[in-house]
């Protein structure tokens, strides 16, 4: 069974952490993953850096630029990950933009993901229609879950369509905007979370964008299955590095 599927069947709320591969240091990838698993994180999104990350706010943009500057490439990421399944069992997702995947070759990329033990992909600029028409078979051949996004502006009809096409979970973008940390959510977000919950979708939802601390994590997961922290984690890494991971995770959720 795909590790994402297994994990979402657990009874607990999911804490997912995003980090940019190659940041702060080029070869931090494996240490960050191991440290996150050790500290009880449930799911990890490994960011494949891109020169033009349209959906990202300033924090993740800057980490991507630095990671590329450090020398991160698709090839190198796969090399870093080649023995990752010897040390961790946590579900791993690669999150990135479509162009680097296209250049690597979609089939070759998916094959490599399977080889190193990646469980799913999040490619925000590969939309549903293109995925279903051209790439679905390839993803399925390698048992990779393609995670789709929904936003507060997504119509109910389209949410149903996305739910049907999804496996694992739906990435629920908390509010209109790019990635970035917020300190609290407003009523409009709560209303949105409740509205989605009431749809009783086939796939659980994990909330992303704007989650930064225990308050926003708890608000987001009151109804949803889990939440994703990206920018706030990157900021912590910038300030404290890998040694700060344990304290950061504990500040979000005590076990």
């Amino acid at each position: 069974m795909n590790r994402i599927q297994q994990r979402i069947q657990d009874d607990k709320k999911i804490l997912s952490i995003y980090f940019t591969a190659g940041y702060p240091q080029l070869n931090d990838t494996v240490s960050i993953i191991e440290e996150l698993e050790k500290n009880g994180v449930d799911l990890i999104e490994i960011g494949l850096p891109f020169s033009d990350p349209l959906a990202d706010g300033p924090t993740i943009q800057a980490s991507s630029t630095q990671a590329l500057h450090n020398g991160m490439t698709t090839q190198l990421l796969f090399e870093q990950l080649k023995d990752i399944r010897k040390t961790v069992s946590i579900p791993l997702i690669i999150m990135g933009y479509f162009n680097p995947v296209l250049q690597y070759g979609v089939d070759a990329f998916c094959k490599k993901c399977k080889e190193v033990g990646i469980d799913g992909l999040i490619l925000p600029d590969l939309p549903l229609a293109e995925y279903e028409a051209h790439y679905k078979e390839t993803f399925e051949k390698y048992d990779l879950y393609n995670i789709f996004l929904i936003t507060p502006q997504t119509t109910e009809a389209r949410i149903q369509q996305i739910d049907k096409a999804s496996k694992g979970f739906i990435y629920m973008v908390s509010s209109a905007g790019t990635t970035g940390a917020k300190t609290t959510f407003e009523n409009t977000q709560e209303t949105y979370f409740n509205k989605i919950d009431a749809l009783a979708l086939k796939n659980p939802q994990i909330v992303g964008f704007g989650i930064s601390n225990a308050t926003t994590f708890n608000q987001a997961t009151k109804k949803a299955k889990g939440a994703i922290i990206g920018s706030a984690f990157i900021k912590m890494l910038t300030e404290k590095g890998i040694v700060g991971i344990s304290e950061f995770v504990k500040s979000i959720r005590s076990f």
């Binding site: 020169s51 033009d52 349209l54 933009y97 162009n99 680097p100 296209l102 250049q103 690597y104 600029d125």
Partner: peptide, 22 residues
């Protein structure tokens, strides 16, 4: 350029072999 995706469109695009836009 090689075939790639920029600003929402699949087109010819100047990029590195790794797919970073130059």
């Amino acid at each position: 350029g090689k075939v790639g995706v920029i600003h929402g469109s699949k087109t010819l695009l100047m990029q590195t072999p790794d797919g970073q836009i130059t």
